[in-house]
Design a protein around this nucleic acid. Structure first.
Lengths: 251, 251
DNA sequence: GATTTGCCTTGATATAGATCAAATACATGC
DNA sequence: GCATGTATTTGATCTATATCAAGGCAAATC
């Protein structure tokens, strides 16, 4: 496990159509007044798929939100066993005000652009602008709910249910959910390798592969290409996931 | 799974030596000015061991902090599989501002006293008193870290490591940690039944029992009585838990 | 076009933990 | 002390998932 150095910060000016930073914690509206202040303390960094953003334990002097791409938070045991503990999609937030070092490995799973805020100034903004902190609390509570749903998955679901759950989670959050047709047919862009899926689900990658095949055989999913899945019947998938009708998956 | 009605609110006035509510989110200092305001909206409720505080999905018009005793948050699948997703010790907070119904079953594991705040007024205090919200954010971030440690346990640890981890977690949070002697010998008051332990760890209660016996056989723990455990060598226990020297267990 | 490389799939086998089934300990009330 | 019920331990067996080991496929490189 050699450390590949993260790329030096690039000051990309990625423009989002309705919000220059897509940082839910910061700008409820793009013309928010404190955005001016934040302009001074923010910068963009981009990473290639597979690159590490920070290693657990390393100093981390920024907080950030994902602009585009996907990042993961992973914990590693001494003997190398790995468990993903966070999956960051665009607009998700990473980093903890008041903490000096990273608590988890942060890795770019796809090409990734993050909008970073130097920590100290960000903390100042949080103190002087209550609704920034309130928004962050809301997001953190959402993440806690997601973590608890994830705990149910890890502790009690079968391998098949885990896979179905993960696909449903990605589908729900994926923008392409909008591609759902009248009959409930959904196309999902699966951004994780089998290995990343296994780290999310607490399985081996062989089991992930086998269960993907089984779900395909049983008509629950269609695998167009490795990263492209079709869900013929979303309700059927949810049923396979072992979830209540729609309970949970609060993120 | 019949619903036992929670006891009607009792207006106990439990007096804590340094803080009348032991509610870390609310009173940083006991003579805080907003405490006066909170006096108007808070009340105490007590529950007997085994009683349910609220059922998942039921309306919940309060937030609360644990004054004494232990409560758990549990998720239940349709077929009855259960996973604990929160373990609340004194001073822990439960409930989410801005949510109308409970997301989890909340159960009193021991006799329990909670300090409750009617939600609406509490939200008003949060808005008018930024540092209440800030403290709540801090606590929520701590809980999120604990949840992520828990996810590693559920996804990747062996049964033996899970048990050792749980004992270490309880020991670290238990007041009786202060009873640690020079040689590192610790007495722990284990407040969970084997069943509750199994729901925490994602195991069956038989496996919990077997692994407890194995740890006793191997001298990692001594079982004085069902609810009373001695850890002859805390470092040894931590090693069995598979944790880094002291990494993690941030709560 | 051939070769390498990185995923992914599939098969054979092993095993940790689940499940089913008693037996034992422990508390509570009589 | 004895009866009753609940929690726990222990045993025998089963099974879902891990592990070990080939192969296959498609994109990237030569």
């Amino acid at each position: 496990m050699q450390k590949t150095q993260p790329a030096p910060p690039k000051f990309l000016h990625v423009q989002c159509s309705d919000c220059p930073i897509r940082h839910r914690a910061v700008c409820a509206r793009c013309d928010d007044s404190e955005l001016q202040r934040l302009e001074d303390i923010k910068y963009y960094r981009s990473f290639e798929a597979g690159q590490t953003v920070v290693w657990s334990g390393d100093p981390m002097d920024f907080v950030a939100s994902v602009v585009s791409g996907i990042a993961t938070l992973t914990q590693t045991m001494e003997d190398g066993r790995r468990q993903m503990v966070g999956l960051l999609l665009p607009s998700d937030f990473v980093g903890r005000p008041g903490r000096e070092t990273a608590a988890y490995d942060v890795t770019a799973t796809t090409d990734l652009v993050m909008c970073c805020f130097r920590k100290k100034p960000f903390e100042d903004v949080m103190i002087s602008t209550p609704h920034v902190g309130q928004r962050l609390l809301e997001m953190t509570l959402d993440e806690l709910d997601a973590a608890r749903e994830w705990m149910l998955l890890l502790g009690r679901k079968t391998a098949r249910e885990k896979i179905a759950s993960l696909i449903a989670i990605i589908a729900r959050r994926d923008a392409s959910l909008k591609l759902m047709t009248a009959e409930g047919r959904v196309t999902v862009d699966m951004p994780l390798t089998r290995e990343a899926m296994s780290e999310y689900l607490g399985l081996t990658l062989e089991t992930v592969s086998r269960q993907m095949s089984a779900l395909r055989r049983d008509g629950v999913i269609e695998i167009q290409s490795k990263r492209h899945i079709i869900i013929p019947d979303f309700d059927r998938l949810v049923e396979e996931a072992g979830d209540d009708a729609d309970g949970g998956f609060l993120v």
